[in-house]
Design a protein around this nucleic acid. Structure first.
Lengths: 214, 214
DNA sequence: ATAAGTTTGGTAAAATTTTAACAATTTACA
DNA sequence: TGTAAATTGTTAAAATTTTACCAAACTTAT
């Protein structure tokens, strides 16, 4: 069960996927027991931080022993909401939309692609892996009739805000946004951004100011 | 010039691209003057934080006036290393590699794609926008002969570490990594990650624990 | 069974990051 | 020209995040 108070800091939340990733690796390597000290070597976080992080959700470890990898993995998956299935759509079927649609690992993690939307008449009506490409006009109806949990926005910048507003109105709780804008959405709608150029620019900053580090 | 001490915190660095983005918008809208208070409304950062952030690099503002948008934009671009050109290659020309290669906005920002690499014999030798797809074997030679600054890794997980090691040995200073692993590289090589599934999992966490927020 | 070695969870301290406050300076306008 | 309003850069305070520490509890080996 765990405590799961609603005041987990974003710093902790951002580290959860990394724990998830390494625990999966350990399971695959048939390691069934791990201490915070060993996890520290793998993840680069301090052992103390790892214990603090995990304790936000419950006391999963045992003194003198450490953590049971399988149990902890399951707990983390549950905490992260990865035990459910999420219905998704992709809005904007350009290069990026196609790349995301073809990323099979998302399906494996429980993210089920239900629909694709675009404005290009040349591709509307086509099927991609059993999924139709619909006209953008049909989006609202589709969202309502298919219990969509996550809408993925991969349109050009100029359309993203309008689409986000429409998605929000249709009652979709989550948006995964790849457009390089900060979307304004009503309370209760959650936006997670993947700002590729921001990331690239951080890299260029770090390369340019590298002397500082050395 | 600015002070540009080498101890800028990553918290500050992560905010730089957002300043850059909004300053560009302002310029496009022909707004030539902005106060930290107004920037605060746009970015969602506090005015105080904005002044603190900018002051890490120099006193670009003027009391009673605010900041000159054009000047500040130029300064930020310079700080972020966006006044130079970076030669890049993409290693792994799958769906994601293709999406990145076709992202024209990177070219506009000074990131010049010089080569593509893959192991698939069916596509090796093909040209994409005047750029050849090379065999992976040729990578080291190419990197050395073409002054590559940034290698973009968009291979499957299993190959990423080996490729990162080879890239580092070839003297490339920056890696933009899309593979879902944490790469180990020698000192002096900078890795910036885009972990798509981590981002998606954060979204699923936030959706699943939404009640907490309300 | 006992003792020595591990390791957690919690508490306290340290470090970092954010916010608040304000003197100094400039702008804007009467 | 003079005065009120605006706004920065800087210093100090508050808040948050990370690290250090250690008693309690478990494991392992003898």
């Amino acid at each position: 069960m765990g405590k799961q108070q609603g005041n987990i800091s974003t710093a902790v939340i951002r580290r959860l996927p990394k724990y998830h990733r390494y625990l999966k690796d350990l399971l695959d390597r048939e390691v069934y027991r791990i201490s915070s000290k060993e996890l520290s070597v793998l993840t680069g976080f301090t052992a103390s931080q790892i214990r603090q992080d995990l304790n936000n959700f419950g006391g999963f470890g045992q003194q003198g022993y450490g953590y049971n990898v399988e149990e902890l993995y399951k707990e983390i998956r549950s905490i992260m909401g990865l035990t459910k299935t999420y219905n998704t759509v992709i809005v904007g079927y350009g290069n990026l939309g196609q790349a995301i649609a073809n990323y099979t690992s998302f399906e494996k993690s429980g993210f089920s692609l239900k629909g694709l939307f675009d404005t290009n008449p040349e591709i509307i009506g086509n099927k991609v892996k059993d999924i139709y490409i619909h006209a953008l006009d049909e989006m609202e109806n589709f969202l309502k009739n298919n219990q969509i949990d996550i809408a993925i926005i991969s349109t050009p910048k100029a359309y993203a805000q309008d689409i986000a507003t429409r998605i929000s109105k249709a009652g979709v709780p989550g948006i995964w946004n790849f457009a390089p804008v900060d979307l304004k959405v009503p309370e209760g709608v959650i936006v997670e951004n993947v700002h590729l150029s921001d990331s690239l620019f951080i890299l260029s900053y770090l390369i340019s100011n590298q002397e500082d580090v050395e």
